[in-house]
Design a protein around this nucleic acid. Sequence first.
DNA 1: TTGTACGCGTTATCAT
DNA 2: ATGATAACGCGTACAA
Lengths: 395, 395
Amino acid sequence: MAKIAVRQRTSCGCVSTVSIRILYLRRRRGSNRFDDRIDGRVRSSAMSTRRATISDVAREAGVSPSTASVVFSGKTPVSDATRKRVLDAAASLGYTGPDPRAASLRTGRSGIVGVVFEEHLGAAFLDPVKTLMMDGLTEAVAPLGAGLLLLRDQEPVAGGPSLTSAPIDAAVLVGCSGLLRESLDVVRSRGIPVVVIEGDAGEGVPRIGLDNREAQRQAASHLRSLGHERVAIVTLPVRTGWRRGWIGDADITIDVTRARLDGARDVYPDAVAFAAAGSFIDEGLAAGREIFADPEQLPTAVIAQSDLLAAGVIRAAEEAGLRVPEDVSVTGFDGIVVDGLAPYDLTTLVQPAADKGRAAGQAVAAMLDGADAASVRFTCVFRLGNTTGPAQERV
Amino acid sequence: MAKIAVRQRTSCGCVSTVSIRILYLRRRRGSNRFDDRIDGRVRSSAMSTRRATISDVAREAGVSPSTASVVFSGKTPVSDATRKRVLDAAASLGYTGPDPRAASLRTGRSGIVGVVFEEHLGAAFLDPVKTLMMDGLTEAVAPLGAGLLLLRDQEPVAGGPSLTSAPIDAAVLVGCSGLLRESLDVVRSRGIPVVVIEGDAGEGVPRIGLDNREAQRQAASHLRSLGHERVAIVTLPVRTGWRRGWIGDADITIDVTRARLDGARDVYPDAVAFAAAGSFIDEGLAAGREIFADPEQLPTAVIAQSDLLAAGVIRAAEEAGLRVPEDVSVTGFDGIVVDGLAPYDLTTLVQPAADKGRAAGQAVAAMLDGADAASVRFTCVFRLGNTTGPAQERV
DNA sequence: TTGTACGCGTTATCAT
DNA sequence: ATGATAACGCGTACAA
C-alpha cells in the first residue's frame, strides 16, 4: 500500500470560499435583494455579497434584462455598443454568465444525458465491455453537446440524483433490472427519451442489443462439432445482488444472461450452469474451481458467458491440472483482449461493444430531435482461438 | 466488422412520446395555464395535455402547494391523512414528483459533481489509470448521494454543458490545462468547490497528486545503479493536442509530464526525450521505433512515463531485434496490468490510482460540507520487474 | 434593436 | 400540522 503524505495547506481560497457561501446564505434569509441599491443602481460591486444576476448586470449597463440576456445567449442581434456595455458591466460585477439552473428551468433543457447502470458504478469502469460502450456513447452524444451523467439503478441516497430526480434530457439504460422499472415509468411519463442497451424496458423504448442467443448457440454448436458431450456453463449474474452458485432454469431476471444461457441450452439442453456474481476473472476462477471440483464429473468443455469469466475458468483448469484445450475446451463471449491470458487465444464471440454505445447515442440524438428511433440489434462474430479442441475420451 | 441488423419497430411509444412533446410545446406558447380549469379545479387529468405541477396536485388534494411540496420532500412532518390525499391526487394527475430543474433552482443544489477531463472523453475510459481513478471517485462520492457528470475541457458545443454551464455542485478537474483556467475562474467565482487531480489550478484549489518527480527519479536511479549511461525518455503528451516528436526542455504545459521528466533528468540530465501523443501502447511503439531507428545511437535503457508506453517500447525493441532486458532495459510508470505483455513483468512505479479518486471525492465532500479540504500527495512504490537489467557493453 | 411583463415549478420562511 | 407569500434567475413573446 502506498503511503500517504498529507500536506497541510495554509488556508487560503478554500476558507474564503466557505465564508462567501455563509455570507450568501445569510443574505438569502429575510434580506431584501434591493438593499444594495440606492435609487435603482447598484451601489458597488465590491460591496455586494450576493451574487450578481443578469438583472443586476442589465441595470449596471443601463439596459433591460432581456437585452442583457440576449447578449449572453446570442439568440438575437445586439448592437456592438450595447454588447460592450453589458459585458463591461458583467465584468465589473463579477457576473460570469447565466445560472445554469435557472436557464435550465426556463428552457427545459439541461444538456445532460443520464447513463444508468444496474451495478456499482465502479464496476462499470472496470468492465472492458462497458468501457468500450461508454466510449462509443460519448462519441455519439458529443455532437449533441450533451454531457453524460453517471447514474446508478438503486434507491437514491437522500438528496442524490436518481433517474427520477436528475435534470436529464434523456436517459440511456444499461441493462434493465426490476428496480428500474418504476423509475423508468416516471421518466417516460415526463416525456424524456429513453433508450436501453442490453435489456427490455417495455414497449416503446428503443433497444440496442445483440443476437446473444444465436451467437452463444454458435459457440455451443462449435463445441458439439468437436464432439463434446459433457458441457458446463458459467453464466453472468442472474439478478442484481446475486451471489455465485449453481442455478436451475428459474429465476433469471437479467436478459443477457437468459439469452446466452438459452443459446447454449439450444445445443446442450442438460448442461449444468454455474452463475457468477459478476464478469470478472476471479469469478470465473471460482466458478471453474466448482466445476472442476469433482474428478468423476469433469466436463470436457466449458461455455463461459464472458471472456473474463473464461479466463478465470482457464486458470481454474490449470490449477486442476487440466490442459486447455486438450483436456477441456473453453469458450468466452465479448471478444475483448484479456490481460495475461497468453499464450491462450480465446475462442469467443466478438461483440461490437463500442457500436452499441454509438447506436444508443444516436438513438437519443434522434429522439431529442423529435424523430423516432428504431431498435438496433447487432450481430456477434464467432472467432476461433486455441482454447477449443476435439473432445477427448476420458480414461 | 459486425453486421448490423436493424429491426424496424412498428411505431408505438416513441411516436406517442413525440406527439406528447409537440402538444406540450404548442401549449406553452400563448396558452394560458388555467385553460384546463373550471372554477379553480382541474377538469380532468386525462384531458390535460400540460404536465401537472405540484400546484395542480395541491389544488386537487385541497391543500396548499407548500404542504404538497413537503409531502414529497419529507422535510416537515405531515399528517397521514393529508399525505394520502396529496399522494392520491398526484397519482390521479400523473404527477411523478418535483421537477428537478425547478427544485434545483430553488435549493441551489443539483446533486451533481462534474468531472472534467482534458482529453477526449472516450480516452478517459480507455486509460486504465483514469478508469481506476474514476472507480475511487465514484466510491467516495456515493455517500454524498451525488452523480458524476462527465465533462470535457474544451470550448462547449452550442448548448452543451461546459464547466461553466452545467448545473454542478462541485467540480473535479483531471489534469489542468490552460484552456480550463478561465472556466475555472468562473466556477470558483460561483462559490463552487473545486479539486484538482494531477494538476495545478492555482492557490486555494486543493490538489490530489503524486510524488511524480521523486518516483521517476527512483526508476532512473535504479537504471543508473545497473550501469546504464545512455538513456532515452518517452514522455506523456507535453500539451493538449500535441503530436508526437522529440522535445527539448521547453514548452511542457502538462504538470505530470514535466514532473516525471524532471525526475528522470535529475539522474540523466542529458537524456533525449520523445513525447508521445497519449498514453497508449501504439504511441509507445511509435516512440520506440524512433528511438531504436539509428543503430549507431541505441540507448541501453528507456524510461517511459507510463506502463502502456513502456509496453509499446518493448514491442518496438523486439521489432528492432533487441532483447529486453539484455540489450535494452525499459521502465514504466503506473503499475497497471498491461495486456499481452507476458512474459514481461514491467519494472515500474505503482501509483495508487483509485486512492487518488477517492481522495478527490472526499475533498469534494468536505468542501460541500462547508469544511476546508487539504491537498493530498500520494507516494508511488517502486516495483522491480524483469524488464530492467545490467547495462551491456555494446560491441 | 430594445424594453415590458410574465411565467417556468419549486421551496424556505414565517405566521397561524 | 398547515397555509400564505415571496423569491430563485432567467428567457421570450410581444409591443414599441
